[in-house]
Design a protein around this nucleic acid. Structure first.
Lengths: 149, 149
DNA sequence: TGCAATAATGTTATAAAATAACATTTTAAA
DNA sequence: TTTAAAATGTTATTTTATAACATTATTGCA
């Protein structure tokens, strides 16, 4: 399990390779999500950063930074929960599976699992049979965690 | 293809069987969604109903009505788009498939397809292997429709 | 039929999430 | 060094959603 510093370094290198820049502000937002044990909304992130880093960035900035991090695949937006979660594979060397998020409707806990290639292909075929093009196979499912079930 | 009146009648009977009541206000919200060619947000619904029925219910009421309709499975909330869409199987006599929504990220068009039982079972097993319980297998996918692709 | 309880809806206010538009600062490139 | 582009800030607003209290309508029971 890589330390947060290592993950940030790795993220920085990945961004540089893509011609993007992981600025200090962006690092701090990503760090906030990595430190946090749970998915956070933009405003929860602002509160969290106020407590952890003694800085309170404007919401507009946080949203922009989250958009950037999402575009760089460092962060995932969970639409079911209106929250963001750090990608759990940032420092992996191998290509990892498309994420599927199991979101507890009761307590908000989120678990990330990988979607098998075969399942993605099935989804993709279903989509194309319907005249649409699959843009992003990331999945979110309404669940209950083992504590709330 | 059932007429809107028939669909509403069917919905009313289904609610009655479930011990719920499809009041006039609720009928009008459902009708609005049935008339509409596309998924609508709560506020879009309010605008739509102002134009179609010359009534402008408060947002709070619309949200409550949408919650009710969703609970009765007459309406689906699309979390990716923050919109609602009428269930397309209200007057079907047979048990229909769990819905999967293909949502065009560009224009907002939504297509509903059915998820095969085998795919649901796969999803369910993946979830349970992770210690969670699948609560609702409804899926939403980021897509592009054939016009926007 | 009348009354009490419950359900549905309205009102007022606010919270939460998100974005538009303009401005300033920082960084990178020429 | 200067300019252009990127990043961030500021101000304001829009959009989505809900809390809490009040009123109205409906239902069930005596």
């Amino acid at each position: 399990m890589a330390s947060i510093t290592q993950i940030i370094d790795h993220a920085e290198n990945t961004c540089r390779k893509n011609g993007a820049k992981l600025t200090e502000k962006r690092k701090r937002v990503l760090t906030g999500l990595l430190i946090s044990k749970k998915a956070l909304s933009a405003y929860e992130l602002i509160d969290f950063m106020q407590k952890e880093f003694n800085e309170s960035p404007p919401a507009m900035s946080v949203y922009r930074i989250l958009d950037f991090l999402e575009t760089e695949n460092l962060v995932h937006k969970l639409h079911l929960a209106n929250k963001y979660i750090a990608c759990s594979h940032i420092s992996c060397a191998h290509e990892h599976e498309v994420p599927q998020f199991l979101i507890c409707d009761k307590c908000g806990n989120v678990k990330e699992i990988g979607i098998k290639k075969s399942l993605i292909n099935t989804l993709k075929q279903n989509v194309e049979k319907s005249g649409y093009v699959l843009k992003s196979p990331q999945l979110e499912l309404h669940c209950l965690c083992h504590e709330c079930a």
